[in-house]
Nucleic acid binder design. Structure first.
Lengths: 148, 148
DNA sequence: TTAATTGCAAATGGTTTGCTTTTGC
DNA sequence: GCAAAAGCAAACCATTTGCAATTAA
């Protein structure tokens, strides 16, 4: 929500396409559409959200393709998927922050980044003698006086 | 893994039954079986795990009942369910710690508790102006030289 | 060229639900 | 007695997959 000028969007899309191509994917029009949508979205969309947004630009796309493209992007570590509150996966570009605060009233997902989270992770890892591959902190709450 | 003598197990089971009854559930033999299994399990079992363990004690139980009882216990806030690595829910008694370290080689789930996690949560909540209802930290990693 | 991608429809698989019978309290 | 719980089988529903046709590189 800050340094996201139009040209930077284009840059990131091109970068992701290049990365995807490098990891063996073919860059089809559908692939580009999905990447653009992910690049533009700040609301951690579900596959269905992405499917709907993609159909507006290219009505011929099928949900199977959306799932397949998202899975390929995830296997290439370009996209991260995770379940937050719901039982559906949510997708976001992998370089975005991986911790979230979910607003229980609005469903809004807020990205969290804080160096202390990593410090805490390191401390816990050391205490248990583990090498951490991935981790996430998820908070669920509401603004006082926000809803209800 | 420390103060879990036999009598304390019995205590906790009776306490959970009382709590469940208080919140409107009927304590059937199946209910008791499920509560006992949860009380004895330290491995964060899935519904299927629980169903299998329950069948050993009472072959007449159905998986639908297991799900229904677990859902009731969760609605009463006596049990917490969450997805960790897999796409199945895992269940644990609500007074157990809610943060986990998942061993990617063995699948073992280790409960984590650390006052700093709560301090961090409070700090983030304050920064964003939220009242946190629930939260969890999940770590995924492996012991160096452990597997693979 | 040729292996990857696509759309469609069918399959998966964990979880839920409708219905009828049984049972806790 | 009566609302809650049980078993069974069917329904759900997000996600995956088989297949035949299309297409990127």
């Amino acid at each position: 929500m800050a340094d996201t000028s139009e040209s930077e969007h284009g840059d990131r899309v091109r970068q992701l396409e290049a990365d995807a191509r490098r990891s063996g994917m073919r860059i089809t029009p559908h692939t580009t559409t999905i990447i653009q949508i992910l690049d533009e979205s700040t609301d951690h969309p579900t596959a269905e959200d992405i499917f709907e947004r993609a159909r507006e630009r290219d009505p011929s796309i099928s949900s199977a393709s959306v799932y397949r493209i998202l899975n390929k992007l995830e296997e290439s570590d370009l996209v991260r998927r995770q379940r937050l509150d719901s039982d559906r996966f949510r997708y976001e570009i992998a370089d975005e922050c991986r911790h979230h605060l979910v607003d229980l009233d609005t469903g809004q997902v807020i990205g969290i980044s804080d160096p202390e989270i990593d410090e805490l992770k390191d401390k816990i890892a050391k205490r248990h003698g583990y090498e951490i591959v991935d981790f996430r902190l998820e908070l669920f709450g509401r603004k006082p006086g926000g809803g209800n």
